[in-house]
Amino acid sequence: MNIPSIISTCMLVLIATNIKADAFVSDETGANIDTPHYMTPAQYQTPDGKHNILKQQKTKINPQGNVYGLNGVLPSYPSELAAGKGQNLVKSYCAICHSTTYITNQPPLSSKHWQEIVDKMRFKFGAKNFINDEQEKAIVTYLQAHYTPETQSHVESTVNTNSEEKVRSETSSVKFSGDLTLGKSTFVQNCAACHQTNGEGLSGAFPPLKDHAAELFNTDGGRSYLAKVVMHGLSGQISVNKDNYNGNMPAWKSVLNDEKLAAVLNYILLSWGNDKRLTNDFSPYTAEELEAVRKLDISPEKMTMARSQLNLLSGSE
């Protein structure tokens, strides 16, 4: 027997031994400290590109024919959690076991429900090994602050809608019988890239419209100011909730007609909880109102000055 054949015999023995060692043992607790060697657990990957869907994957063909399976990557779509205190705790701890879509696609649940759910995660699913009492409190407070019927705006799916049931308006507390569809689509197409679909803006770059638009509306002259800003733009430094912004709000007069500008203002003031913050009697903006604003000759710089004359809360100017 020559040396190479001895080596190959040894290797065969080794391989055979390995197969035996690979017999994976579990028990009635489901013990799985190590993943069984014969399976490849799923890896999750957020699809790149603009389409948010993953193209159909090829099933992996193993030349030996023993391994059956897939490419090994499943698409993952991280959801956008509402911004606020506790968001990072939720992102890091809850996502250990499940994607946060499991939170964002729940219907609005009561504060008690959220407390029960987090308790269940800690004590029945074992998350108490990761999450201490103080963190639990912060997580529950966060969920209650953003995902209850009181704190989350009402949305009914417009997909496959049964025609006998009317789609509920996304807002409820303010009297408004009109249709927000035009305002929403105008917002998504023109405003959301900076101010974000959720109206929260981006701290330091684009000011929020959530809460802040209602705050502006509630001041003396706020109604007229908002109409002028969307029509004629704004340029210069402002601050909102102590965050400074020094960008350019474009003048939309050359892009959007009066009807769309009125619609987008109504959408902003009736979305993201703004409707609940409006203290002045709100009546919807009309195209005629915007037509009058269009005729004014105002520069974006002048709007910054107009803003400083509004009686805003401390932290915003």
């Binding site: 799923a42 999750y44 992996k60 391994v67 059956y68 399976g69 897939l70 090994g72 076991c97 499940h98």
Partner: peptide, 15 residues
């Protein structure tokens, strides 16, 4: 129910 699900299984070893 769980995040770690198999995407490949080696039938030579699985029992």
């Amino acid at each position: 129910h769980m995040p770690s699900v198999p995407t490949e299984i080696d039938l030579n070893i699985w029992r």
